[in-house]
């Protein structure tokens, strides 16, 4: 005796939302909340300060001033500087620069760089040279505003020593010093919570759909009738339990 197999239809996917929307919402809330809490731990603040320097080639002929060839060379040097500046020599010079300032001007509270490793210091520093320009923008992102500003100025000051030695035949002139550092706040709580909520809802939905598709029970009276089409369904008894009031 053959019995009909259940057909999987769109209703199987929609009915899960209708019947278990509260579980889907709960899943979204749980994972969204977990995402918020996790992101709350990694909220960090840092400060950014910038200084600018200008790359000038040293003219061989003092009478005719800067030629177009020299300008092009200076631009190429500026681009090269950005590439080669982040090296051990720069870090070494910056450390020395800070140490000297700490001794000369103790009232300015220059930071002790010994707590930072070379790679950490290099990671704080970035440089940018726009195409066909001779200036270099030095940006420092550091945990404190004063460190950011001091480091930006120190890099600008020591760039000539650390780079010119490598490239040669050029001067690096300071254009602007770093003043007040700007505060950056990296706060991913909202996006993480939203991602978590979405994931939670999808996860619960997928689990519920999987359970429904794996469910081998007869769900309704009509399904029982459909299952064994030759056997009539005499009726369906409503969902009432012993002791319940009408």
């Amino acid at each position: 005796m053959k019995l009909k197999e259940r057909r999987i239809g769109l209703n199987d996917f929609l009915v899960v939302i209708r019947k278990f929307y509260f579980l889907i919402i709960a899943g979204a809330l749980v994972l969204g909340g977990a995402g918020w809490l996790t992101a709350s731990r990694s909220v960090e603040e840092n400060y950014t300060a910038s200084s600018m320097v200008y790359v000038q080639t040293v003219s061989t002929d003092m009478d005719i001033g800067t030629s177009s060839t020299e300008t092009a060379l200076a631009r190429a040097l500026a681009a090269s500087c950005v590439t080669v500046m982040k090296n051990d020599a720069l870090v070494k010079n910056v450390r020395r620069y800070f140490a000297e300032r700490r001794e000369d001007s103790p009232e300015e509270n220059w930071e002790d760089l010994s707590v930072y490793s070379d790679s950490a210091l290099l990671g704080m520093i970035s440089a940018y040279n726009e195409a066909n320009r001779q200036d270099i923008l030095i940006t420092v992102t550091a945990p404190t505003p004063s460190l950011a500003a001091h480091l930006a100025n120190a890099v600008a000051g020591e760039l000539e020593v650390s780079v010119v030695d490598v490239i040669g035949n050029c001067m690096i002139l300071p254009v602007s010093a770093a003043g007040t550092a700007t505060r950056n706040r990296v706060d991913a709580r909202r996006s993480t919570a939203l991602t978590g909520a979405l994931l939670g809802a999808v996860l619960v939905y997928v689990i519920l759909v999987a359970i429904r598709l794996c469910d081998r029970t007869l769900r309704r009276g009509e399904e029982a009738e459909d299952y064994a089409a030759w056997l009539p369904l005499l009726g369906t008894v409503p969902n009432e339990r012993e002791g319940e009031e009408a």
């Binding site: 029970t217 009276g221 029982a224 369904l233």
Partner: peptide
Amino acid sequence: AGYTDRRRAADALNALYNVRATLLGTVAVD
């Protein structure tokens, strides 16, 4: 409904069918 396994329902129907029982119908308890 929601509890009776389809396979077990089929087994029961087959068992009754095999002994030539007269099946009047099913009652679904929601």
